[in-house]
Amino acid sequence: MSEKEVLLKVEDLKVAYGSIEAVRGISFEVNKGEVVTILGANGAGKTTTLRTISGLLKAKAGSIRYKNLELTSLPAHEIVALGISQSPEGRRVFGTLTVEENLKLGAYTKKTYNNATLSWMYELFPRLSERKSQLAGTLSGGEQQMLAIGRALMSEPEMLLLDEPSLGLAPVLVKTIFDTIKQIKQSGVTVLLVEQNAKAALKLADKGYVLEVGKMVMKGDSKTLLESPQIQEAYLGKKK
């Protein structure tokens, strides 16, 4: 294997809402081509971290470097243009726009959307292809999640941020979504996955981090984390 190239490097990141610090100095790295997962309970600061990487929140301190570019001072729309896109928590699809309009908006930073990418999305998510001209708000939760991921991929990102893609979905759909993430990885896109479903996320990821009330408490390759007693107890529901 060749030397691993660091795509995203977060160092000592602090983010606060007013006086409440939600992220208290975390550091992590994502290598090119990997799937990296950040695990943690509600309120651990996972979504805050992703929103800060995307530029929706301003960091209080620390740095986020993407290919040696500092992201913390850039507005959100420029970060997308650099090659980082996000499928946000709660999907946030544009409900009164059609499925196809949602997908095309994903490629907003491009002069025109790439037809091949659009076809790939319909291949990845055949359900969306059947519902092209339907309003996104009328889709089921699972379909909206597919749309949110597809929309984020339309910008042909080098790095995809996924915020709890399995949240609130039926088990069979959770499997579909994770299978899709695997396919996305195989296509060469680097994935930073935030999840509560620790087992599924670790099975898919190369390495993982565990976030607890704004601090990184564990890190390691997925296999080690899966077997770690703390993780098994806290996130996988197994008793000691």
């Binding site: 959100a76 996000q86 946000p88 009164t96 726009l97 907003y108 929309r151």
Partner: peptide, 13 residues
């Protein structure tokens, strides 16, 4: 519809 989601599309709101 959603300004933050629009920003995530690369739209300069």
């Amino acid at each position: 519809i959603d300004q933050d989601a629009a920003r995530l599309m690369g739209i300069n709101v």
